[in-house]
């Protein structure tokens, strides 16, 4: 396994994090908030891609898992007085456990049936957030979630601190996902995506591999939910619908590029920045997502990542522009 390659990726990611953080902290509060949200959605997209891009399973339950992380954090901090730093890992574990239960149900199916089954779970999850009003605040939302605690020595205001945390969570998720996809489990997930029968014939325990991918993505989705809740101080069920967050994740990863870990970050950056840039059309952001999804699936099914790779290759060789390299195929 190429250790040097992992080292290079790590160094590049940390450097990009430092640049992004330095630049972001110069922005005004509104743009800073956009960056913070963008980083949280990028975190969601990276963890979602471990399942969608690397393992080949389209889950529509992840909007609900995002909510599980958010409500877990809200309940633990606001109702039980936990500090954010204890609630964050706990929320990840709760989402991971919920993910494991969903996975055990959903992996009885494949392909379209898997998507439909997780769609059902996503709908149930959203309903539960509405119905369990005693825990979640119901339709009125969950108010009074404390912001992430900020040590005194940090020379930042709360908004700056929130942005820094969101970028740091993105960095940690990206590096964890890099480790995961390079591990034996990650190789097994790729095998499951490409050819389930051959994967079995090679002795790969496919059940274990895809469960690991699902739980991995659920845990980091839970972390993102927890940070989202603490930063917003308020969450409501409408943030965790199948057609909202659930669909948004699919769009971010497909537009960014499935099966690469930096592609989804590009996707999140574009799809968070775009609605803000097109402020006039704010009510139509879902429509913008839909249109982008159409355009990318038809013209660049490997997403921004493949366009960027092709662009870089062209710069390097001076050769003519070709879209994705040959041999791209998706199951």
């Amino acid at each position: 396994m190429p250790r040097t390659d992992l080292l290079r990726v790590t160094v590049a990611a940390v450097a990009l994090f430092l640049v992004a953080a330095t630049l972001a902290l110069r922005l005004d509060d509104y743009l800073l908030y956009v960056v913070t949200l963008g980083a949280i959605f990028a975190t969601l997209a990276v963890s979602f891609d471990v399942l969608l891009g690397y393992t080949g399973y389209l889950s529509l339950a992840h909007g609900a898992l995002f909510g599980v992380g958010a409500y877990a954090c809200g309940i633990l901090t606001a109702h039980h007085g936990w500090p954010f730093w204890a609630a964050l890992p706990a929320a990840g574990l709760v989402a991971g456990a919920a993910g494991a239960v969903i996975a055990l149900l959903a992996f009885r199916t494949r392909g379209l049936y898997f998507a439909v089954l997780t769609l059902g779970i996503g709908l149930i999850g959203h309903q539960l957030f509405l119905v369990l009003a005693g825990l979640t605040g119901g339709v009125g939302g969950f108010v009074g979630i404390p912001s992430p605690g900020r040590p005194d020595w940090v020379p930042l205001d709360q908004n700056g601190w929130n942005a820094l945390l969101a970028l740091a969570l993105l960095l940690a998720t990206f590096l964890a996902a890099q480790l995961f996809v390079r591990s034996r489990l990650g190789a097994a997930c790729l095998a499951v995506r490409e050819d389930l029968t051959l994967a079995q014939a090679l002795g790969i325990r496919v059940g274990q591999a895809r469960l690991a991918a699902f739980v991995f993505s659920a845990i980091f989705t839970g972390f993102a939910g927890a940070l989202f809740a603490a930063i917003s101080n308020f969450v409501a069920p409408e943030s965790f619908t199948v057609l909202g967050a659930g669909f948004q994740l699919v769009a971010l990863v497909v537009v960014g590029g499935m099966g690469t870990l930096w592609g989804p970050i590009l996707g999140a950056a574009l799809l968070t920045a775009l609605p803000e840039a097109l402020r006039v059309a704010s009510g139509y952001s879902l429509m913008a997502y839909g249109v982008l999804l159409l355009v990318f699936v038809i013209f660049a099914p490997r997403g921004l990542a493949s366009l960027a790779t092709a662009g870089l290759a062209r710069l390097r060789t001076g050769a003519g522009f070709r879209a994705a390299p040959a041999g791209e195929r998706r199951p």
Binding site: M1, S183, R184, A187, A188, L190, A191, E194, D195, T197, L198, A199, A201, L202, G203, I204, G327, E328, R329, R330, P331
Partner: peptide, 30 residues
């Protein structure tokens, strides 16, 4: 497989969307 019984397939199976190197990495990791 863990006992050492390994098969190939009539219509040769490999991970067609991945490079030869990736194919071998997956088998080695398995």
């Amino acid at each position: 497989v863990s006992r050492g019984i390994v098969r190939t397939f009539q219509q040769t199976r490999a991970f067609l969307g991945l490079s030869v190197r990736e194919n071998l990495r997956i088998a080695a990791a398995a």
